[in-house]
């Protein structure tokens, strides 16, 4: 069970810090707030936003990481989305993609549906689940000092790495990225591969 520590981090500021020096990373975001967070930092052709497919963000990142072993792939998703696809942690751990980083914006809530509590509110520890699956590098972040340590891990430690960032459930303005699936897919592939 996760220890009870005060949660103070603002998710928008966290994602902004993570993406500030993003270099050439390929970013996959889970549906709901993580997609809005990434859009609020700024739209980017290397972003692939999930608007649905709950439980699929980490696995989308896995397929991409396996296809592009020389590129760093970062998945930012929520605690509810991660819990729905939590078996994916085992699938990722078995594949051992050295270029895949997973970062959870864990507000312990289902944010898009009325802020109902998720299991992480009740002590379910996602970093411990990643550890149990076999991740060698995992952590839970509660403050800016820990975040400053975690960001280089997301970018350059041998993957797969897992960072669960505890963020407040304070409401944020909705910032919507493009939502047309074929457009997002074609834009991403064209930028990465030079063809759609």
């Amino acid at each position: 069970m996760a220890s009870r520590r005060k949660i103070t981090l603002d998710r928008r500021k966290v994602v902004e810090k993570i993406l500030k020096d993003r270099g050439d990373i390929l970013l996959v975001t889970g549906l709901g707030a993580p997609t809005w967070d990434a859009a609020a930092v700024g739209d980017h052709p290397n972003n692939f936003y999930l608007w649905g497919g709950m439980g699929g963000a980490v696995l989308t990142g896995l397929g991409l990481a396996l296809a592009q072993p020389k590129r760093r792939v970062l998945v930012i998703t929520g605690d509810g989305e991660m819990l729905m696809g939590v078996g994916g942690l085992a699938t990722v751990a078995v594949q051992k993609p050295s270029n895949l980083a997973i970062c959870i914006m864990d507000n312990q809530r289902y944010g898009e549906t009325g802020m109902q509590e998720t299991h992480t509110e009740h002590g379910v520890d996602l970093a411990a689940m990643a550890a149990g699956a076999g991740f060698q590098k995992y952590s839970t972040v509660y403050n800016n000092r820990e975040l400053a340590e975690a960001i280089p891990v997301l970018y350059s430690e041998q993957g797969p790495v897992f960072v669960d960032v505890k963020v407040t459930d304070a409401p944020q303005p909705m910032t919507l990225p493009p939502r047309d699936g074929p457009m997002l897919k074609h834009r991403f592939r064209e930028n990465l591969l030079g063809h759609v």
């Binding site: 390929l26 996959v28 692939f48 497919g53 439980g55 699929g56 963000a57 980490v58 696995l59 989308t60 990142g61 896995l62 397929g63 991409l64 990481a65 396996l66 296809a67 592009q68 696809g85 994916g88 699938t91 897919k185 991403f188 592939r189 990465l192 591969l193």
Partner: peptide, 10 residues
């Protein structure tokens, strides 16, 4: 999801 990601990566 894995195969969607694979396609994104070519």
């Amino acid at each position: 999801a894995v195969l969607s990601g694979a396609w994104l990566g070519g």
